[in-house]
């Protein structure tokens, strides 16, 4: 331990800072962070010099949280791995079905509008004919 600290003190300042930040990150992932105690072994670093970096590390620790896959996905993949075949690449339709509901709704409205537009353009001659004959009457 003392040999380790001695080495830290003889390191160049930026190396000391890297060591300190690594210790700080480990402390963030642990129970609690005592900045004064953490910085004590590093004689060439002052707290006000590391405040900005420490704040970024704390934000990272708060924001990068564990994300859990759905139980259905985990079990389905297990079954495929142990007893089944590798799934084929999803088709565009399968991918569409897995999109969030709002995206699916937007895609549906967009598709309906496009279809209506095409139908309107295609039926235009018939509509115009009907209007003309109605006016002539």
């Amino acid at each position: 331990m003392s040999f380790d600290l001695f080495n830290r003190r003889t390191h160049r300042p930026h190396r000391q800072l890297a060591e300190f930040l690594a210790d700080h990150a480990d402390a963030l992932l642990g129970e609690s962070v005592d900045l004064d105690r953490l910085i004590a072994p590093y004689d060439r670093i002052a707290i006000d010099q590391v405040e900005g970096l420490v704040a970024v590390a704390e934000r990272l620790s708060r924001s990068l949280v564990d994300v859990k896959p759905s139980d259905l996905f985990v079990e389905h993949l297990r079954q495929q791995l142990l007893y089944g075949q590798e799934p084929e690449r999803r088709t565009w339709w399968q991918r569409l079905r897995r999109l969030p509901p709002r995206t699916q709704l937007a895609a549906g409205i967009g598709g309906a509008t496009l279809t209506a537009g095409v139908v309107l353009i295609a039926s235009r001659p018939f509509v115009m004919d009907a209007l003309t004959s109605w006016r002539e009457r």
């Binding site: 930026h14 190396r15 890297a18 930040l21 690594a22 990150a25 970096l53 704040a55 990272l60």
Partner: peptide, 20 residues
């Protein structure tokens, strides 16, 4: 391990600048 610590240091520096 030393390279990882150094990379972490540089990452924090660039993130801090970007965030500021």
């Amino acid at each position: 391990e030393g390279a990882i610590k150094s990379l972490y240091h540089r990452t924090l520096l660039s993130l801090r600048d970007v965030l500021e």
